[in-house]
Design a binder for these strands. Structure first.
Lengths: 123, 123
DNA sequence: AAATTAGGATACCATATGGTATCCTAATTT
DNA sequence: AAATTAGGATACCATATGGTATCCTAATTT
C-alpha cells in the first residue's frame, strides 16, 4: 500500500552543495546520528535534518533508529542512475576532448589506476 | 570587468528533467535555433528559452546568433566536474556492488555480458 | 515599404526550497 | 521520579524556480 513516489530524485538531491557535503561526510564517517552530523555545518539541526530527509527520499541515505537517536548512512546506489545518464555523453567527449579525460581518470593524482575501464572499446 | 559568477552550476542545471532532455536533444541534433527546439516540449517558447539560458549559464550550452535566430549547441565539458565528483564514490561501489557496475558499463543491456562473473578483480 | 517572424525582456504567478524558531515526545541520565 | 537530551513535526519566512502572457526590437519576407 502506498507506493511512495519518491518526490525527490538523485539529480535534485545532489543539486544542493550542503547535500553533496553530507554525502561525502557520511561516506567516510560510515554512520552518524544527527547530533554528530550537525556541527559540521553552519546551519541548524532542523535544516540538516531536512537535507538528510531529502537524501533519504532519493535513496542516497539510509536511516536507522538506535535508541533515541537516528543514525544516517550513505547509500551510493542511486548514483548509478546518474552515471548511466552521464554515459550518454561519453562518445561526445571521445570525439572532442580526449585530453581532458585525464582529469577524470585521476581525480586527485593518487595513482594511475586506470579507472574507467575504457580498455579496448571498439570505435 | 565583471567576472560573471555563473549563478548556476552543473548540478543545479541538470536537476531539472526538461533541461536534461534539452541536453540530449541538442546532443544529437547538433545545433538548433529556439524555434526548432520548442516544439519538442509542451511548454512555451519563453520557458524553453529560460532553460537554455540556465544551461548556458552553467556552461553546458553555447549560444550563437545567426541572423535573427539564436542557435544552441551542447557543450559537455562541465559534466566533467560531475564525473569527478562521482568518482569519489567509486571505491564505495567496488566494495559493495561489483555486480551492479555492469549496468553502468552497458547502459541499455545490449549483450548478455556475463553478469555476475566477477572476473579477476583483485580483493 | 509593409507584414511577418525570431526571440529577448518584463511583469507576474504559484509552488518549491532552504532556512529558522518553537513545541512535543520518547529515550537516557541523574 | 525528575531533568536532560535527541530529534521529529509544525508553522512560518524569504527567495528561487518553472511557468505564462505580453510587449518590443531586429531580421527576414513579401
Amino acid at each position: 500500500m502506498g507506493l511512495q513516489k519518491p518526490k525527490h530524485d538523485v539529480y535534485q538531491a545532489i543539486a544542493d552543495p550542503t547535500r553533496r557535503q553530507l554525502l561525502l561526510l557520511l561516506q567516510d564517517a560510515g554512520e552518524l546520528p544527527l547530533k554528530e552530523v550537525t556541527p559540521h555545518f553552519a546551519i541548524t539541526r532542523a535544516a540538516v535534518s531536512k537535507h538528510l530527509h531529502v537524501l533519504t527520499d532519493a535513496g542516497l541515505v539510509r536511516e536507522r533508529k538506535v535508541g533515541r537517536e537516528t543514525r544516517y548512512r550513505m547509500d551510493p546506489d542511486p548514483l548509478l542512475e546518474l552515471r548511466r545518464w552521464l554515459a550518454f555523453f561519453d562518445l561526445y567527449w571521445e570525439n572532442k576532448l580526449s585530453a581532458l579525460k585525464l582529469l577524470v581518470e585521476e581525480p586527485e593524482g593518487e595513482g594511475p589506476a586506470e579507472i574507467g575501464s575504457d580498455g579496448g572499446s571498439s570505435s
